[in-house]
Design a protein around this nucleic acid. Structure first.
Lengths: 144, 144
DNA sequence: GATATATACTTGACATATAAACTAATTACA
DNA sequence: TGTAATTAGTTTATATGTCAAGTATATATC
């Protein structure tokens, strides 16, 4: 039996957990016609100043590539969850802004997402969750 | 600013971390012509008794659906990393077995995967890693 | 101020996952 | 037995995400 380091095991566990998490959130959030990634985008936009961001910053924030963001936003823009804005002094940039309809859906979906999360982690100590969350955040910002 | 529970934040952090992890592993493992999921499959097969598993058990093990496993295995079978076996008393089942070539690639890729993992988590305490790992494992086995 | 480089974003080609529907085989049980 | 339910796996249709290349704009340097 091959044995592996705690570090590699950690990454394998993340992979599996995320596969299950994404599926479960997708199923639940489909009631609002959105997936987990759409939800994350709406949420991050709601936290940004002016509820808008540059697309490249959004990509960085959620761990996607620029092209992934373009593709994700296209249908969201079409159904009016987000809207596109330009920047006066730099024509390369286009901002994504949270639209009223997106904000409404976010509010409703958030309740459900909170419910799923709490239910799932009901057996875990909050102190542990917080500590490990900050460690995950560190993983998500590590630069090679 | 909308505030969220530590539980939901934890899941959002996992989503981001996994996006980055999968991309990085994919880039590195492409030297052996495999992706992170192929690697995980080879690894899990190597740990299974007789180095073989039922496809449905493999799916469960890695957090995929049955159809996802079918699609992942098809090219791996074609290039000889795994081979297909049948079960005497149950014709519905087909086993996936680690092939010699798959075992060889696993050995080499494993070194690299270990290197990436250790490098990435070099600033984290091993005790924390282990703790988070077991929490993730619990997330991965929680039944609703 | 011309040219090279960098940045922001999009598009085309491709890979990968899923859900739902399907086939085939096994098991339960009336 | 024979029929319904369950289980294992595959296929179809579709969505999602990447990489590499392309467009347009901005900045740096000589």
């Amino acid at each position: 039996m091959i044995s592996i380091s705690p570090q590699l095991e950690f990454f394998l566990n993340i992979a599996k957990a995320q596969a299950l998490i994404a599926r479960r959130f997708d199923v639940k959030l489909s009631l609002w016609g959105i997936g987990m990634n759409d939800f994350i985008i709406l949420f991050q936009l709601s936290r940004a100043s002016g509820e808008k961001m540059r697309r490249i910053d959004l990509a960085e924030k959620i761990g996607f590539t620029a092209s992934g963001v373009t593709r994700l936003l296209a249908p969201m823009e079409k159904i009016g969850l987000v809207k596109r804005e330009t920047v006066a002094h730099d024509a390369r940039v286009s901002l994504v802004a949270l639209a009223p309809s997106g904000k409404r859906i976010l509010t409703e979906a958030l309740e459900n997402a909170e419910y799923i999360s709490r239910e799932w982690l009901v057996n875990q100590k909050v102190a542990n969750i917080k500590e490990l969350s900050s460690m995950l955040a560190a993983v998500g910002t590590y630069t090679f």
